[in-house]
């Protein structure tokens, strides 16, 4: 029966199949076409996330391969409680944050700001939300690794503080602090960049 289902699905083409069906068919048949279709659907998104987080094209390309190999190893334990995409992006975020932590450890703790009041992290006016891609790219290029990760999770993935805390392995209060500092640094970077732009205009 599985064979006939397999043949029927092949005749239909993979593009009509749900992610969950592709996962199931891959687990049953171990056919690389099913996993290949998942790769085709998600690898650009994973790459996009990695390059934004890691800020390095070569590292992002390697990260995509590593992440899909991890998925391959763990797909047997994927219980489909969540969507495949959600599961994959959790693995992607974990991978990138681990890599950024390793980088930070290698470079040492440089440039940490003193603790400040954290209450207004989320309530501040959202100037960062309304910036152009060019400005955002400039800001991200000049932020530290973990600041960049925190802002990407907040603005690009639209995660809540609670979700970011889980993803980054921090307490909620520490996450708020991280976000507040990241936004302060982002503002400084943006102001310098923007005044340069205005001077040339």
């Amino acid at each position: 029966m599985l064979l006939s289902l397999h043949l029927a699905l092949q005749a239909l083409g993979f593009s009509d199949m749900e992610d969950s069906e592709l996962v199931e068919m891959y687990l049953v048949s171990r056919g690389d076409r099913y996993f290949g279709e998942l790769y085709r659907r998600y690898s650009p998104k994973v790459y996009g996330k990695c390059i934004t987080m890691l800020n390095n094209e070569a590292e992002a390309a390697d990260a995509v391969q590593d992440i899909f190999e991890k998925v391959l190893m763990r797909i047997g334990s994927f219980r489909q409680d969540s969507k495949f995409g959600t599961w994959l992006f959790t693995i992607t975020n974990n991978y990138c944050i681990d890599l950024l932590r390793k980088r930070k450890r290698l470079r040492g703790k440089v440039g940490d700001m003193p603790e400040t009041d954290i209450e207004d992290v989320v309530e501040e006016s959202d100037w960062l939300q309304d910036q152009s891609p060019l400005a955002i790219r400039h800001i991200l290029d000049n932020l530290s690794e973990l600041d960049r990760a925190a802002l990407v999770l907040m603005y690009m993935d639209e995660m809540s503080v609670k979700e970011i805390a889980v993803q980054m392995g921090l307490q909620e209060s520490a996450t708020k602090m991280r976000l507040k500092r990241a936004r302060q640094r982002a503002k400084k970077i943006y102001d310098v960049w923007n005044s340069g732009h205005k001077a040339y205009a």
Binding site: D32, Y39, T52
Partner: peptide, 28 residues
């Protein structure tokens, strides 16, 4: 938003290469 557009720009840069993953599937 600018964040959505940046995400799209980054996704478009991707050059897919399934061969290493295929190799991993065969190894498994």
């Amino acid at each position: 938003s600018g964040w959505d557009l940046l995400r799209q720009e980054n996704e478009e840069k991707h050059k897919p290469d399934f061969n290493p993953i295929r190799g991993a599937i065969r190894r498994n």
